[in-house]
Amino acid sequence: MTAVSLHDVSFSYGDLSVVDDVSFEVQEGDFLGLVGPNGSGKSTLLSLMLGLQRPDGGDVRLFGEPAHEFEHGERVAYVAQDATKTSRDMPITVREVVRMGRYPRNLFGRFSAADHAAVDDALDSVAIDDIADRRVGSLSGGQRQRVFVARALAAEAEFLALDEPTVALDAESRESFYELLADLNDTGMTIVLVEHDIGVVTARASRVACLNKRLYFHGAPDDFVESDALSAAYGANQRIINHDHGVHTSDTEDSDVDSDSTDGSAPTDSTAPPEDP
């Protein structure tokens, strides 16, 4: 079954094109790592996949429905960077946050025994049950990110989207966080991870999508490592690297760069498009 499908998806902020003609699919049970340089449209693509924004062109489907019309909030969950001021300042306990996972299923009514059980199980399975009554703001970054994963578990979500979740974490909590994600993926959860650390993605993910406005690669991690996609994607808007390769050096945000540096759109599930001579 397909969890997310993208078909010729384009998106721009005003005149600035950030996602251009992207097509690929995320199958249920995939662990997709979405990589690309800064400003490559990774986060935008993630929010398009979640239906938080509508594409300007093309079609995004989430579990078969147009993503922006998808109404089953309990099936999807989102984890952001641990940099939000709110999560540190606001008086709220771990349990209160994890309970939010049940909200899409039960927004107004009394919590049932099943709701309470799901919250307890979620706290238990990411090993934060002992800190359930602590203030989220008093936790370490690593613990806090586990709280957000627990919220997704409480929702019994099938699709977990994470946007650079370990940016603010130390190496050790990072490692254990990715082990947790791998464990979740083993139990069947579909994961899409936006990540700047390519090593993490090639080690942990089952699929890799490499993006820089256009899709440069979609396929298995091993094939990604052997392909030129990485240098092609990262080279396309990095002036210094490009200079050595003789690719033209116009402004990094110039939308012409993209069409000039490649011929046509990148085919899905293939290696990178050829670079300019």
Binding site: L52, A77, S87
Partner: peptide, 10 residues
């Protein structure tokens, strides 16, 4: 607490 996650949860 978390507007984006709330939107993702519909």
């Amino acid at each position: 607490f978390d507007e984006t996650a709330a939107r993702a949860s519909r």
